[in-house]
Simulated assay, not measured.
Amino acid sequence: MNIDVGARLRYVRMQRGLSQRALAKQAGVTNSSISLIEANEVNPSVGVLKRILDGLPISLSEFFAFEPEKPRQVFYQAEELVEIGKGGISFRQVGENLFGRALQIIKERYEPGADTGRVMLTHEGEEGGVVISGRMELTVGEERRILGPGDAYYFESNRPHRFRCVGPVPCEMVSACTPPTF
């Protein structure tokens, strides 16, 4: 039997409402360790996996015993989107259970002045999006650009990046990330 440890870990982490960074902090491992495991780029030792699972908390036996349901839903009403953001940033994810999925789609809303933080984000995969309304300052590595309605972006997510709403009105975007590691 071949078990997808990365997808399973991502599923359990997201069910608990934790970001990769939050789980890494709780488990005492690096954020990149969680990211690499979820992307199936590394196969964790039992000791490392146990340490990570203790941060959730879930036992090794529970982790390997449960069978996540495969997502079957195709269409989503606006109220069915799952909120995974907090504070001045709303991330409304399409689908609650991303187990076995290769793509994460998010409707984002940033209140004026809201940003993802001074510490730049990094995670495995690629991401892209389109600004629907408002203005967004996007920094990717050393590049910085202010994007307005209709403008778009697409980059490798392992490049340090930061989003910040500029201007007096909220910024709304639709984005996608593959694999779903955000």
Rank of each mutant, 00 (worst) to 15 (best):
I3F: 10
I3H: 05
A7T: 02
L9M: 08
Y11M: 09
R13K: 03
R16I: 09
L18M: 15
Q20S: 15
R21M: 14
L23Y: 04
A24S: 12
Q26I: 08
A27W: 07
G28M: 00
V29M: 02
T30A: 12
L36I: 04
V42C: 08
P44V: 07
S45F: 10
V46R: 04
L49A: 07
D54M: 08
G55K: 03
E62A: 07
A65M: 09
F66D: 15
Q77W: 13
E80I: 05
L81H: 11
I84H: 06
G85E: 09
G85L: 01
G88S: 08
G95D: 13
F99N: 02
R101G: 13
I105M: 13
I105Y: 02
K107W: 10
R109W: 02
E111H: 09
G113V: 05
G113S: 13
T116Y: 01
R118C: 07
M120L: 14
E126A: 07
G128C: 12
G129V: 01
V130I: 15
R135I: 00
M136C: 08
L138I: 12
T139A: 13
G141P: 12
E143T: 13
E143F: 11
I146G: 13
Y153K: 00
Y154H: 11
F155M: 04
S157G: 06
P160G: 11
R164I: 00
C165I: 02
C165M: 02
M173V: 08
S175Y: 07
